[in-house]
């Protein structure tokens, strides 16, 4: 089983491998028809133990656009898990039928456990508040395509930086890609954890609580949702939920070529009026998510050039 490659967290990939996946994704964007049969005859299993629309659809769309096929379930009640089957047994069985598996689970570490018992590649599509590596690849591809040639970007992360797994993975991976300046914008209660900052070069980041203060400096603004499900105290959630709302007025001081990213879903942290602004790229970002997953599937199945 050791020769099979899995993607459980971003660090499972070397910088070289990330580069190769992003390059391949760019080639797919340029000429998708050239990859329409890249995974002919291959089967992707989607094991979604908790609801998801975007991630599941993007994986399924990715495989279908590569000429492959899909099987799977989108909630555990429709699988043997409802009968008490273990994750280990579920993955061992699925591996008999399919060529690659995608897993989302509310418990942290389930994809890692599954990968230990799987002789087909396993991709983590989100495990609780832990990791979501394909969102990180999506974010990297978005910046690469839309901010091409920008060598030392100033990236602002705004909102829930404490619980936001996408921010944690993105910052850690971005830090390995090259020089950048990070502006962490959050209320004191939702500051980015120490262990993330520890991995950043000294002097490369600042922490502030005002979005207005950072706006004119930013090349990229990464907005996040204040996640209700992470709060134990409903009162605290109510107090913080509207602390950052991006609207056209706030964007008046932003650079003309800044881009606004968001992992989605959004609630109200970006006003609808912003959607018309050419700087708002979050729906394009969702599309890049499909392309980067196409590239990842090709890589893990070793179908490139076949």
């Amino acid at each position: 089983m050791s020769s099979v490659r899995h993607l459980i967290e971003p660090t499972d990939l070397t910088q070289q491998e990330i580069e190769e996946i992003l390059q391949l994704a760019e080639k797919i964007i340029e000429k998708p028809e050239a990859y329409a049969n890249a995974c002919n005859g291959k089967l992707l299993a989607t094991l979604f133990f908790e609801p998801s629309t975007r991630t599941r659809f993007s994986f399924e769309a990715a495989m279908l656009r590569l000429g492959g096929r899909i099987i799977g379930f989108s909630e555990p009640n429709s699988s043997s898990v409802a009968k008490g089957e273990s994750v280990k047994d579920t993955i061992r069985t699925i591996a008999c039928y399919s060529d690659i598996a995608v897993i989302r689970h509310p418990k942290e570490g389930v994809p890692r456990l599954a990968s230990k018992y799987s002789d087909i590649p396993v991709i983590n599509a989100g495990d609780g508040g832990h990791q979501h590596p394909t969102q990180t690849l999506t974010d990297l591809l978005t910046m690469r395509v839309l901010k091409k040639g920008l060598e030392h970007p100033t990236v602002g992360f705004c909102g829930d930086l404490k619980f936001g797994r996408t921010v944690h993975s993105f910052v850690k991976t971005l830090a390995k890609q090259g020089e950048a300046k990070y502006i962490f914008i959050s209320p004191p209660e939702l500051k980015i954890p120490e262990y993330i900052k520890e991995e950043l070069p000294e002097g490369s980041y600042v922490e502030i609580s005002s979005l207005d203060q950072a706006m004119e400096e930013l090349d990229v603004l990464y907005m996040t949702r204040i996640q209700r499900e992470r709060f134990l105290d409903e009162g605290e959630y109510m107090r913080l939920k509207d602390c950052y709302i991006l609207n056209n007025e706030k964007l008046e001081h932003a650079k003309e070529d800044m881009i606004i990213m968001h992992p989605l879903p959004r609630v109200n942290e970006i006003a609808d009026e912003v959607d018309k602004d050419p700087r708002a790229v979050y729906f394009q970002q969702a599309k890049f998510g499909m392309y980067v997953r196409m590239a990842l599937i090709i890589k893990l199945l070793e179908m490139e050039g076949k």
Binding site: V87, P106, K107, E108, G109, H130
Partner: peptide, 12 residues
């Protein structure tokens, strides 16, 4: 000690 960890779900 993380209650959300898979080790609280399965015998590992």
């Amino acid at each position: 000690k993380n209650p959300r960890c898979v080790t609280t779900l399965e015998n590992i």
